[in-house]
Nucleic acid binder design. Structure first.
Lengths: 195, 195
DNA sequence: CGCGACGTTGATTTGCCTCAACGATTGTGG
DNA sequence: CCACAATCGTTGAGGCAAATCAACGTCGCG
């Protein structure tokens, strides 16, 4: 059975209006997939061809540092787009891996196809502009937090902002995303309990 | 005398074709300004209304941390856009300051006006989508470098990537942008000379 | 000339990492 | 359904990269 693509339409409708014919066209061009836990959507060295919208589940984007550590740069949960935009735009091999943290359902479209859809539905370009702009804004905030907060402060802030997320992913992934070690996260948490 | 807006047209043409009537429309709606050294385009607490394209010169975007330190998040030089997209999209007070490092010439358009221009020139939306996507990609690379490189490695990498930039801005600004103290940058440099 | 802005250098401190050992929990094959 | 391994989190000791603080040199400019 085909996954339900409607969350994507709902998301698009938050920014631009779609008529039924356009929804049909999109349905025809998006490919829905179910990704098992720990399966990869993209592996380091491959070229990223797809824009992926997360219908359900959770994925992570990470890279392997020279020290052999996995560094998570990004999570993708429901209603987020995930892709290596650098690789996608330049058709260059990606430095990143994209892997399912939980079993996930995604709607993908490869960049060539998307270009052809833009021609037929110009306002979709508007949707992508807005969505990208929001993602860019979030990314700048992220840089702000990295530079102005200590590790502990970053965790506290994240905890306040996304409480539901804390128990959704393993702590070592959280620690990696926040830019420190699992041991350090453990120490922060034990400090809090003692209060 | 009006500043020359043509670098902006040249930049737009790298991504979409403009006919003379459209260039005229843009000329009518963009406002060119000369910003003296150290003047502000945006101050913390204000709402950012404008998308600004740097025709000439250099600006910096920074915030004041609670410890009273200026943290630079971003530089804008020729052919870059600069704005607080978060503040712009949400009409919320900005956390950032945007200030001219050198005397600079910019082409601005406020977000409302830009929306009306999008209606008349839909392909401009495409241009902004692409430009934003590139900026977002660059921002993700930045996060990658922050997390995977040491301070010294970040400096070396920056030096290799943007050699001309090194003597263009004061060292304390570079240090701030790279996420460490001016003292530390000074020590890195002295190490190199000793080679 | 004298002041302020910027860069340098050294001594000391600190936030977080590394490494190692050890529980708890989960999952898997016999 | 149990045994054992793998995975994940915790705790502590020791170490290091970079911050902080303070003093001083230098240049450009009113």
């Amino acid at each position: 059975m085909q996954n339900d693509i409607s969350p994507l339409f709902a998301h698009i409708r938050r920014f631009v209006a779609l008529d039924p014919a356009e929804e049909q066209l999109l349905s025809d061009h998006f490919q829905c997939r179910t990704i098992p836990r720990k399966a990869f959507l993209l592996k380091q060295g491959e070229i990223c061809h797809n824009y992926c919208f997360v219908l359900k589940g959770c994925l992570r984007m990470y890279l392997n540092t020279d020290k052999g550590v996995e560094q998570i740069t990004h999570f993708g949960i429901e209603n987020w787009w995930i892709a290596d935009y650098m690789s996608l735009m330049q058709s260059s091999p990606s430095d990143f891996n994209i892997q399912a943290v939980e079993e996930s359902e995604i709607a993908c479209i490869d960049s060539q196809t998307l270009e052809s859809v833009f021609v037929r539905i110009p306002k979709l370009e508007r949707y992508f502009r807005i969505v990208t702009q929001r993602a860019y804004g979030a990314s700048l905030m992220r840089i702000k937090y990295i530079y102005t907060f200590s590790g502990e402060e970053r965790f506290r802030h994240f905890e306040r902002s996304f409480p539901e997320f804390i128990q959704r992913v393993p702590q070592y992934m959280l620690a990696s995303y926040l830019g420190f070690t699992p041991e350090f996260l453990s120490k922060i948490r034990s400090k809090k309990e003692a209060r």
